[in-house]
């Protein structure tokens, strides 16, 4: 390949060839020829990152699709325990935060820094409301023992509420529950003895004879017994998978929102320092893309998790 100057080829490559045109912007990085090239590269990078995110959530959607087909009745029944009011409210809140984010980008494009900061704060407030509602929803699941794991219990036929929730358990706070969950003692409500060998499924290897709460013993061949109480075994088949997916999907979504909130603090700080102007607002624009993506995930999660078989058909 030759490297001599040839006037005909100037506009063929991806490089712009007019580096000096717009003067030197302080945010212009040395390895880019022009600010335009820098902006294009960042934008494409963000989009490539987002399609990576699509595939990341895609794995969860794939699992969801398989199990929803297999356990449709359980998915319907379990979905019915979610509050449509809270779900709809949160959807509106998140769509609203998408609007404020779009307006923040718009303000940045026009170089209106005060307005930009205002809309970022509005987006953060809406994000906080969403996460707050999520906390309420999660805590309801914890109280009703509809969380996957050893303490899981879901018996829609039994009046929707599991038997055997002791008074001590009802008084437990979320941190108590979490603590018990983390230490593997969730199958054993306060007051009952905890058996750590049973609490860890991984600890019961085949070949070791262990006794389930019902008194069956598993010998050489069988799988180890499901750790947890008898309510877990009696729960509607597939319902625990629904709740596992519910927590995995909404949890992963919430994690993305929490990361987004952190990023917004950083943007706010930079905007306050006067880093953004009509000539340079790439971080705002790219963050906007991220935030809208998180919104899109929720747009799918809402009907898929909250609205399964609400009309009671088959």
């Amino acid at each position: 390949m030759a490297t001599r100057t040839d006037p005909e080829v100037h506009d063929v490559g991806a490089h712009g060839h007019h580096a000096g045109d717009e003067g030197h912007h302080p945010r212009h990085l040395h390895h880019f020829d022009t600010m335009d090239q820098q902006k294009d590269a960042s934008g494409l990078g963000m989009w490539v990152f987002l399609i990576q995110e699509v595939m990341f959530f895609g794995g969860l959607f794939c699992a969801y699709l398989v199990y929803r087909n297999r356990f449709f009745p359980a998915f319907g029944a379990a979905s019915a325990t979610l509050s449509i009011e809270l779900g709809t409210f949160n959807t509106v809140v998140l769509i609203g935060s998408s609007l404020t984010m779009a307006l923040a980008v718009n303000a940045a494009q026009r170089g209106l820094v005060k307005r930009l900061m205002g809309f970022i704060i509005a987006t953060m407030i809406l994000g906080t409301v969403f996460l707050g509602v999520k906390v309420v929803e999660y805590s309801q699941k914890f109280e009703k023992r509809e969380i996957p794991g050893q303490n899981f219990c879901f018996e829609p036929q039994g009046g929707g509420r599991c038997a055997g929730v002791s008074e001590a358990q009802e008084k437990e706070t979320i941190p108590d529950l979490l603590k018990r969950y983390m230490t593997g003692g969730l199958g054993h409500p306060p007051g009952e003895p905890s058996d750590s060998a049973l609490a860890h499924g991984a600890a019961s290897i085949p070949g070791e004879t262990v006794t389930t709460p019902e008194g069956h013993s598993s010998g050489e061949e069988g799988p180890p017994p499901l750790p947890g109480g008898s309510e877990r075994q009696r729960s509607m088949p597939g319902s625990e998978i629904y709740f596992s997916l519910y927590f995995a999907m909404t949890g992963m979504h919430a994690l993305h929102m929490i990361i987004g909130m952190g990023l917004m603090l950083w943007l706010l700080y930079n905007a306050h320092k006067g880093m953004y102007s009509a000539a340079y607002y790439t971080p705002i624009e790219n963050f906007g893309l991220y935030w809208h993506f998180v919104d899109i995930v929720w747009i799918y999660l809402f009907p898929l998790l909250y609205l399964i078989n609400r009309h009671g058909g088959h």
Partner: peptide
């Protein structure tokens, strides 16, 4: 990203006994 989420699910299932792949809970 697909193996990332798959390994997260494995770790969650192993650590917290949630059910995604566990045949005892109907998982595949």
């Amino acid at each position: 990203p697909v193996i990332a989420i798959t390994l997260i699910l494995v770790a969650l299932e192993r650590g917290f006994h949630i059910g995604i792949f566990d045949p005892r809970l109907g998982g595949d």
